[in-house]
């Protein structure tokens, strides 16, 4: 698998209330290869959507470069329009993404018209609908969004993206608004598209079960940075970063069970406090004010590093990587 999209030292900043600067994305390196499904997880406000939008060229990075197939993203309006045909966005709420007055046919054909895709429009629409699991496609042509179930609507949105034959889907919480029974079907569809079309996907979610269900790799984000990246099997069954460990611990319904591969066996680690503020990123390791290891007491020298020394930025490559002084000290090789 070769590299499809790569973010290099990417930062996204917003002007927040009172003139402060919110460092929503604050130095991220991440690669998605052709045909690969990467899950981007982390709590609300950690910068997932900002990162996803910058990958699509929808927000201008304050710093860093995004390369698609090796080339930096175009900066002209025309260049960006061409790029967005290859990298498509699927949003959480299918109802909001569809125009209630447009039929399913029009919803899917719109993108084809905007990008002046050559070929028989009817055939292209039908093909995209049936790939998205709406079969026979003709039956849905004249239906309006309110006549469809939530899952069917999300399929229409996905069909609209597929019609343009993209190489990358960026899906922001694609199943969060769908019912349990529909969720699995949409996720299975993403897996099938990867298999049939070698479609890569970056799936933004705070659902770790979703990552387990479909992703090859997972990137865990905390306050604008990636804190742990690696193959799903490794990161989700033997998490090394205290934040990832906490996220996973609150999922288990049997609190007594220790997490495989971790030193923690004391039940769910419910981090107190709200997601931290990107206008005031703590010094040292940005997780230190909430870190359970610091709270439990670390050797003096290590605690000093946690409080004052920033953790090096992960390269976002294929091997498992952890942004934590303690984890790094345990594994001097990584």
């Amino acid at each position: 698998m070769s590299e499809l999209i790569r973010a290099e030292d990417l930062s996204v900043r917003f002007k927040a209330r009172g003139g402060a600067t919110a460092r929503a994305v604050d130095g991220v390196e991440l690669t998605v290869r052709k045909g690969e499904i990467v899950a981007l997880v982390g709590e609300s406000g950690c910068g997932k959507t900002s990162l996803a939008r910058s990958l699509l060229g929808l927000v201008q990075p304050a710093q860093g470069v995004i390369r698609f197939e090796g080339e930096p993203l175009p900066t002209t309006a025309k260049g960006l329009k061409a790029y967005r045909r290859q990298a498509q966005l699927v949003l959480q709420d299918p109802t909001g993404a569809l125009n209630p007055r447009h039929s399913v046919y029009e919803a899917v054909a719109e993108g084809l018209r905007i990008h002046k895709v050559p070929g028989d429009e009817r055939e292209l629409v039908a093909d995209a609908l049936s790939r998205a699991g709406l079969r026979p496609p003709e039956r849905y042509f004249l239906a309006f969004p309110h006549e469809l179930s939530g899952g069917q609507r999300q399929r229409v949105v996905i069909a609209g993206a597929l019609a343009l034959q993209p190489k990358l889907l960026i899906a922001d919480e694609p199943v969060a608004s769908l019912d349990a029974s529909v969720r699995g079907e949409i996720l299975a569809l993403l897996l099938k598209l990867r298999q049939d079309l070698d479609l890569a996907a970056l799936v933004v979610t705070h659902d770790l079960g979703l990552a387990w269900n479909i992703a090859d790799r997972v990137a865990v984000m905390y306050l604008g940075r990636l804190v742990e990246v690696g193959p799903v099997e490794e990161v989700l069954t033997a998490p090394k970063h205290p934040y990832t460990q906490a996220l996973l611990s609150v999922l288990s319904e049997t609190p007594e069970e220790p997490l495989a591969g971790s030193s923690i066996s004391t039940g769910p680690i419910v981090l107190s406090g709200e997601p931290p503020d990107p206008t005031r990123i703590p010094s040292g390791c940005r997780f230190h004010p909430r870190c359970p290891l610091v709270a439990a007491g670390l050797p003096e020298e290590m605690e000093r590093r946690c409080r004052t020394e920033d953790v090096p930025i992960l390269s976002g490559g294929q091997d498992t990587q952890v942004a934590c002084h303690v984890a790094a000290a345990r594994q001097p090789t990584s």
Partner: peptide, 13 residues
């Protein structure tokens, strides 16, 4: 998470 049966196998109805 961690259950091999559901790895790469989302279940729908």
């Amino acid at each position: 998470v961690g259950d091999p049966a559901s790895r790469m196998a989302p279940q729908g109805l």
